[in-house]
Simulated scan of single mutants.
Amino acid sequence: MLISQCLSGATAVTIALNGDYILAVNSGIILVKKNGIQKQLLKLDHRILDLTFNEAIVYGVGDNGIFIRSTDYGCTWEMTTLPTSGSIWSICANNDGTVVTHGNNVLFLSSDFGKTWKTLHPFQSLLGNKPSIRSIFLDGQYVYVGTKVHKQHGGIWRIDLQHSEMVRIKRDTRMVAAILKHNQFIVSATGTCKGFKGTVEYCHESISSSKKYQWETCESDCKERCYLDLSTSDGFLYTSTSQDENGVGKVSRVYLDENKIVPCAIVHGHGWRVSNQQNEFLVAGLYTSLYSNSEYQHLIQH
């Protein structure tokens, strides 16, 4: 493997073409090829906190409302600022051109692959302080929204984009850091910065009976403050964690059929994001990033 010396502070990652990964670091965006060769795609002054790759388009969001997009596999980039001064933690897209990201307590929706945007206010009817958004997941006409810590309105909300309807499918006072769909299950990664309250939970998808979501908690031998991310590919489901008291974050395989979480790798610092292709994964860590599969592990030095 050829190792670049320019990496520092990885914050986001997504799987791309032919087993390549696109990784966000403090200096910008890089392409990490399956053979380990790395190529700088973009230099940036702002952190990119989430990346997604869909239909040959790379989307990214981060601090101070930054939104980036490339339609030619990172050769050229468009950059704009969405109307929020805070950090954008999550973005998702589908093949039809729908792209969804967020501000503090609003959603930004695009129907033309991120060229133009409109703002949605899903929480405007809620009484009291509005919850802040931390994670989103797009599934057909529905957007699942996970909140930051909020005692009254925290949890996961399902928003119907076609009918402008919203229902809370999970009540939770902790931060919902990630949501995805794995087979027939909706899966969430949650936790807080204090205590050891992190969990990975799942429920059967049940669109027609929204009031009957029954959430199960995966068992683990390790107590975690927070599970930060989730990634799924071809039946393989992974999660990453915040750092423990020793400064170590973990990557774990999640077995929903056995209701368990099994650690399989560690990184120094928070495991901010993880992305996988089958059993291979790359975790974007605060101090080290790790590319691993069942045969070998390789540290990407920062």
Rank of each mutant, 00 (worst) to 15 (best):
I66W: 01
S87F: 11
V61F: 07
V99Q: 11
I29H: 05
S27G: 12
G65E: 07
S90R: 10
I29P: 07
V99H: 06
T52V: 14
P83N: 08
I68E: 06
I57E: 06
I66R: 06
I91T: 10
G62H: 08
H46L: 12
A56D: 13
N95S: 15
L51C: 05
D72L: 08
D63C: 00
T71V: 10
I66M: 03
G74T: 02
T84C: 15
Y73M: 04
T101Q: 07
N54W: 03
I57R: 14
I91W: 07
A24E: 02
P83A: 07
T84S: 13
L31N: 15
K33A: 01
C75H: 13
T81D: 04
L51H: 07
M79F: 00
Q40C: 02
L82H: 02
L82D: 01
S87G: 00
D63V: 12
I66F: 01
D72G: 03
I66P: 00
L42A: 06
T76H: 14
I29V: 14
Y73I: 00
T81L: 12
V32L: 15
I91V: 15
G65W: 03
W89N: 13
S70F: 06
L44P: 04
I66D: 00
T52Q: 06
V32I: 12
T76W: 09
G97S: 05
Y59I: 02
G62R: 06
T52E: 09
N95E: 13
I30C: 13
G62W: 07
V25L: 01
C92Q: 12
W77I: 03
A56R: 14
I88V: 14
G36E: 10
I88A: 07
H46W: 03
V32R: 10
T52I: 15
V61E: 08
T98S: 05
L23R: 08
V32W: 03
Y73W: 00
G60Q: 08
W89E: 12
V100M: 08
I37R: 12
Q38M: 14
C75L: 15
T81S: 14
V100A: 05
G28R: 01
F67H: 11
D45L: 09
N94S: 03
I91A: 10
K33W: 01
L49F: 09
F53L: 06
C75Y: 09
G60D: 08
V25G: 01
V25K: 03
L44M: 15
F53V: 02
Y73P: 00
L49I: 02
N64Q: 13
L44W: 05
R47F: 15
M79L: 05
I37Q: 12
D72F: 08
K39R: 13
A56M: 07
Y59V: 00
V99N: 02
V61G: 09
I68N: 04
I37A: 11
I68S: 04
Y73E: 03
I30A: 15
T98E: 10
I37D: 10
N64C: 03
K33D: 00
I22L: 03
V25P: 00
H46K: 15
V58W: 01
D96S: 11
L23H: 02
L51G: 05
G65T: 04
L82E: 02
V25I: 14
L44G: 10
P83T: 04
E55C: 08
S27M: 06
G28S: 01
I91G: 10
M79P: 01
